[in-house]
């Protein structure tokens, strides 16, 4: 029905990186996430799919406590990363976000130079003792973001002057520069053209070697192409969570089937 998920990307059974149990999210009186329990595996790309407003982005933002910045948002339930409850009172969200990086829907480079965009995170976390180390971190991050060759000659040019696809790869490089363990991506390709999308998807596949990647996407083809595990959200519920190949070829729930065949959404 869609591009058949490639069999080479068969899910590798690995450790659970993030374990969420009975997560509820409320925006004031609006119950946005209902009883979501999910186990996200390390070194795997997990895709969240579902119609608009189904809560997939909200859930993603719970994983690095980005929802803390919204006054009216309340989160109940338990989310553990490596067995540690991230909503524990002792957890500082700033430390958590260094461990759980995030890439946003719209490329949002800082209005600074390309170098400073990448170096900002390592600087505030004190990851480099001197300029040479910082240079090295920046180069490594840009290489991992698959943008090094395009920008190595103009590291002092403003990051906002790059094209949309380059900007998004810069943002990914910025996110990996702080050496996170989990990378959250909120519709990273929705503002990109097909070529840039292909580049970013390729990059996501490479990032899987080192990180647990969670990606929210509206494009089911994209979920099928890049992910090994897929979670389908509908009206705040996690309807089905399984290997991507199973979700797209043989879904158990009728709602999942309706969605991927384009009948609800």
């Amino acid at each position: 029905m869609y591009d058949a998920p490639s069999t080479t990307k068969e899910a590798v059974v690995t450790d659970v990186k993030i374990q969420a149990n009975d997560v509820q999210v409320y925006y004031a009186d609006n119950h946005a996430i209902k009883d979501v329990s999910v186990a996200i595996q390390d070194k795997t790309v997990t895709a969240f799919i579902g119609p608009s407003g189904c809560g997939k982005s909200t859930f993603l933002r719970c994983l690095n406590r980005m929802n803390d910045t919204i006054d009216i948002c309340r989160v109940h339930g338990k989310i553990e990363i490596d067995g540690e409850d991230i909503y524990d009172k002792r957890v500082d969200p700033v430390q958590l976000r260094a461990k759980v990086g995030m890439v946003f829907q719209k490329p949002n480079p800082f209005p600074k130079s390309i170098y400073d965009n990448i170096a900002y995170g390592p600087r505030i976390h004190g990851m480099a003792r001197n300029k040479a180390e910082l240079d090295e971190i920046v180069e490594r991050a840009l290489r991992r973001g698959a943008i090094w060759d395009e920008v190595k000659d103009r590291l002092n040019a403003p990051g906002t002057g790059l094209s949309g696809g380059q900007q998004q790869r810069l943002c990914i490089a910025r996110a990996v520069a702080t050496e996170p363990e989990v990378l959250l991506m909120d519709e990273p390709c929705s503002a990109l053209d097909p070529i840039a999308t292909a580049q970013v998807e390729e990059l996501i596949d490479e990032l899987r070697q080192n990180y647990a990647v969670v990606i929210v996407t509206h494009s089911m083809q994209q979920a099928a192409r890049v992910s090994q595990r897929t979670a389908f959200f509908h009206l705040g519920h996690l309807v089905e969570y399984d290997d991507t190949s199973k979700i797209f070829t043989n879904p158990e729930d009728s709602r999942t089937e309706s969605y991927i065949t384009g009948r609800i959404g």
């Binding site: 980005m66 700033v94 260094a98 990086g101 995170g121 910025r174």
Partner: peptide, 23 residues
């Protein structure tokens, strides 16, 4: 100032105050 800049800074682990004063 667009909220995306604040999100970007918070996303790489800047504290609230760092976000405000740096960006």
């Amino acid at each position: 100032v667009p909220p995306s800049i604040r999100e970007a800074a918070l996303g790489v682990g800047a504290s609230k105050m760092q976000t405000v004063f740096h960006h």
